[in-house]
């Protein structure tokens, strides 16, 4: 069995009386890409800060690289790479200086860093911005720089809190590609996200979080298999007719979810159900058959949508 890089048992964080993380258990193995998927406020960042040994837990046990962060904070942090939810770059400094200075924090030599900075600039596709003031970078570039910075000490675990939030689709794909490469290098990744496609793309295994609790755990495929059907039929009847139609087709498929703007029917065969609906005399304005996703898993588990 691969060794546990992170092990949390009953991990809890309270802010005053408010319970942000409510006794969660999980384990992350070496070389794994582990995800925390959940909506805003689920407690993902709070969990991340505890894992990054910068926030004291209120209760429970936590071991990172076999050590307790309450006792060995600095030793643990020396082996982590942290990408926080909002960038905290040195904005007055040049792009390369951000990498260099961060490497200096770890006591890395100037000679080592000279080479490393070039490597990381290439990795983050920021070679042309090498001498630019960091403040002038676009959001996507800043994000890549933050990730590159987290890699300067060659961390054993890379913690990424919403790595692609606020980025355009192209920038996201570039980032995903970079993260895949890190995984190939054997770096253990922990990623929080509220994007189900990101979780599906990047994570070997994930926990679905809501209101500080774990709702489900497994690989994306396992979760979909367990909590959803193979296909989903999405139909829209227009706002006035949605409710009426919903009542009449509620028996179709395995399960029906009525959302404000559309109806989702979970089934093994979407086309077949669509024909049945039309036969019943309801002609949808639009219809779409797609594969189940983690979004559907979340809806099933919580009755709410992941991103609203």
């Amino acid at each position: 069995m691969a060794e546990a890089m992170i092990k949390a048992v009953g991990l809890t964080k309270k802010f005053e009386e408010f319970v942000a993380v409510d006794g969660i258990n999980f384990e992350v193995k070496k070389g794994e890409a582990f995800g925390l998927l959940g909506p805003n406020g689920a407690g993902k960042s709070t969990t991340m800060r505890m894992i990054s040994a910068t926030s004291q837990r209120t209760a429970g046990d936590l071991h990172i690289l076999g050590k307790d962060p309450n006792q060995k904070g600095p030793e643990i942090r020396a082996h982590l790479g942290v990408v926080p939810q909002s960038d905290n770059l040195d904005r007055e400094l040049k792009v390369w200086e951000n990498l260099f200075i961060y490497g200096r924090y770890f006591g890395l030599s100037r000679a080592f860093l000279k080479k490393k900075v070039d490597e990381l600039l290439a990795f983050a596709q920021l070679e042309e911005k090498r001498d630019a003031k960091t403040d002038s970078l676009s959001g996507g570039m800043k994000r890549r720089l933050t990730i590159a910075r987290a890699l300067v000490s060659e961390p054993e675990i890379l913690l990424l809190d919403e790595p692609t939030t606020g980025l355009d689709p192209q920038a996201r794909h570039v980032l995903w590609d970079r993260l895949f490469r890190l995984k190939e290098q054997g770096v253990t990744l922990v990623i929080t996200t509220h994007y189900m496609d990101e979780a599906e793309q990047l994570c070997d295994r994930l926990i679905v979080m809501d209101k500080g609790r774990i709702m489900a755990e497994g690989s994306p495929a396992e979760l979909i298999k367990q909590y959803s059907s193979k296909e989903v039929l999405e139909v829209r009847f227009g706002s006035t007719k949605n409710a009426e139609a919903a009542q009449n087709i509620s028996g179709l498929g395995d399960r029906v979810e009525v959302l404000p703007d559309r109806i989702l029917i979970y089934t093994e065969d979407g086309e077949k159900v669509l024909k049945q609906i039309v036969k019943l005399g309801f002609e949808p304005v639009t219809s779409l058959v797609r594969r189940s996703s983690l979004e559907d898993v979340f809806l099933r588990l919580t009755g709410r949508q992941l991103v609203d």
């Binding site: 910068t54 942090r77 942290v82 926080p84 924090y105």
Partner: peptide, 8 residues
């Protein structure tokens, strides 16, 4: 906060 995320 960035510094604090290292061993510093």
């Amino acid at each position: 906060f960035a510094m604090n995320a290292t061993h510093l």
